[in-house]
Simulated assay, not measured.
Amino acid sequence: MKRRIFGFGALASLAVAGCSTRSKFLTYNGPEVTSVVVNKGQRRLYLLNNEEILKAYDFDLGFTPTGHKQFEGDGKTPEGTYLIDRRNPRSKYHLSVGISYPNSKDIATAIAAGRRPGGEIFIHGQPNTKKAKGRDWTAGCIAVKNDEIEEIYAMVKDGTVITLRP
């Protein structure tokens, strides 16, 4: 009898522990995020509903943080106006939200120089398998903390305008 009671107690403990696991996929029911603004020099990312700031985050950039991305491998983060165009729940980073770089102008500039424009620019969390190496460690992406990318992932929808400023 005591074994049975112990077994039920252990099973109940596991069930409660399983219920407390937090998902990285949050839900958001607040005001719509109508745009994202990234101020590279200030290292601040803003989620806006029209003119109202809903959330603001600090971030890290590519290993060459100043200037507009022009070529694959230059370590720069793009500047200009793009769209949030995809999301990756199975990213090698905690979560990621894609930016529509390169646009036609970016492609033309790179081709004129005999180079490739690069791509795969995201707002993402921390690496899943290793630790970020200091500040400005990405290859051109915008990196935030894991709990912050969870909020961004929930709040920002595909098709949202993103403006990246120097």
Rank of each mutant, 00 (worst) to 15 (best):
R116W: 15
A56Y: 13
V36E: 11
F25N: 05
D85Q: 10
F122G: 00
S35Y: 02
I121G: 00
H94N: 06
D106P: 04
G41K: 14
T81V: 11
Y82K: 07
S35R: 04
E52I: 10
G75P: 00
P31E: 13
S96C: 11
P89V: 11
A108G: 10
Y93R: 12
K55D: 04
G75A: 03
Y28L: 00
L61M: 09
S96A: 13
R44A: 06
V38S: 04
E72P: 02
R86W: 04
G119I: 03
G114F: 01
F25Y: 15
P65R: 12
G119C: 12
L45P: 14
T81F: 07
P89R: 14
L95Y: 07
S104L: 05
P117D: 06
I107N: 02
F63C: 13
R22V: 05
I84P: 01
Y28R: 04
N88D: 15
P117Q: 01
G125I: 08
H124P: 01
V37H: 05
P65S: 13
L26D: 12
F71T: 04
I121C: 03
K76D: 03
S23T: 05
I84Y: 00
F25L: 14
G80A: 11
Q70H: 11
R87W: 02
T66W: 07
T129C: 12
F59Y: 09
A113C: 03
G114K: 12
V38G: 08
Y28I: 03
G41P: 14
R86L: 12
R44V: 10
N103I: 08
L54W: 15
N29T: 09
S100M: 11
H94V: 01
T27E: 11
E120V: 08
